[in-house]
């Protein structure tokens, strides 16, 4: 995709002056004794980023991946030469994409599992289109040379719920059970540093260095945690899904690696997205 390379170059140009400028202001800043850490104050870098994101919203690079994903959804593909549009049920009926994303994770009787969107799409690719499971598991996340088809598909499906309200079906006992399990995972401390998700995301207004950490147990924090995913990440210029984000947080938590499309990650996405129920999803976004 030549176009995406041009966009990446444009992003790099646009980002550079901003970061140089921030270094200047940061160096001049002097803490006043005895300085308590300002918790809610937005630093220059955050303000710059938000301004930049607003500017980018007109030409959101995520839309390129939505367009690519739409082709993957509608074309006949895989060993069975069928399209997902004619074979894949995301919970609202075969082929229905409008509003499906904001109502996931949900329970799928054919798989006997609660699944998040990426897991369901890959399940359809394997079970309906006949793609080879091992192939899809090999390189699940984007690099600068490769965007997995599932990532583009997730971006397309997510885009079809733009401006709709999150409505994870918690009334379904299967979903409620997975939600409660997810809540336990969020609390679970282990590993060499004794970290849990809550170490970093359990209190309002905390930061790691300059990065704001949403409190994922509250409606407001969970809303900000799930908003803008899947996201085009300016660091590296790649499109990434929530599956990637969860894995990278487990890495920082000093945990081992969750297998791709695990029950554990589904439980976390169920917990966070359901906590955001009622909030309006703004579509695939841009992340720093």
């Amino acid at each position: 995709m030549k176009y995406s390379i041009a966009v990446v170059a444009m992003l790099a140009l646009a980002v550079h002056p901003a970061s140089a400028q921030n270094k200047g202001t940061a160096a001049k800043k002097v803490a006043k004794p005895p300085a308590a850490a300002p918790v809610e104050e937005k630093d220059a870098a955050t303000l710059e980023f938000e301004k930049f994101r607003a500017m980018m919203e007109e030409t959101n690079p995520a839309e390129l991946f939505e367009a690519q994903g739409e082709e993957f959804w509608k074309n006949k593909r895989g060993h069975n030469n069928v399209s997902l549009a004619e074979s894949c049920d995301l919970g609202l009926g075969v082929g229905v994409v409008k509003g499906a994303y904001v109502q996931m994770p949900r329970y799928f009787a054919d798989a006997g599992k609660v699944m998040d969107v990426e897991r369901r799409i890959v399940w359809c690719m394997i079970n309906k289109q006949g793609f080879n499971e091992a192939d899809l598991m090999k390189r699940p996340f984007a690099s600068d040379s490769h965007t997995p088809e599932a990532t583009s598909l997730v971006t397309y499906v997510a885009g079809q719920s733009r401006d709709m309200k999150f409505a994870v079906p918690l009334k379904d006992p299967h979903v409620k059970d997975v939600y409660e399990i997810g809540k336990e995972v969020v609390n679970y401390r282990a590993g060499p540093y004794d970290f849990s998700c809550n170490t970093c995301h359990g209190t309002d207004g905390k930061r790691i260095r300059m990065q704001n950490l949403p409190n994922i147990s509250t409606h407001r924090g969970a809303t900000s945690a799930v908003m803008g995913w899947p996201g085009y990440r300016m660091t590296g210029g790649v499109m990434l899904t929530q599956q990637w984000r969860m894995g990278d947080c487990f890495r920082q938590q000093r945990f081992p690696q969750p297998k791709y499309l695990s029950d554990t990650v589904t439980s976390l996405l169920t917990y966070m997205t359901a906590n955001a129920n009622g909030a309006t999803y703004k579509g695939p976004g841009i992340k720093r």
Binding site: D177, E180, I181, G182, K183, E184, V185, Y188, R189, A190, G191, P192, R251, R254, F255, P256, Q257, P258, K259, S262, D263, T264, V265, S267
Partner: peptide
């Protein structure tokens, strides 16, 4: 749910680099 969560995590995590799967167990 805590028991289910622990059983699930023991299934789901694999060793990567120095982060061995046994790190999932609590002390």
């Amino acid at each position: 749910h805590r028991a289910k969560a622990i059983a699930m995590m023991k299934q789901d995590f694999v060793t990567k680099g120095q982060a061995t799967a046994d790190r999932i167990s609590e002390d």
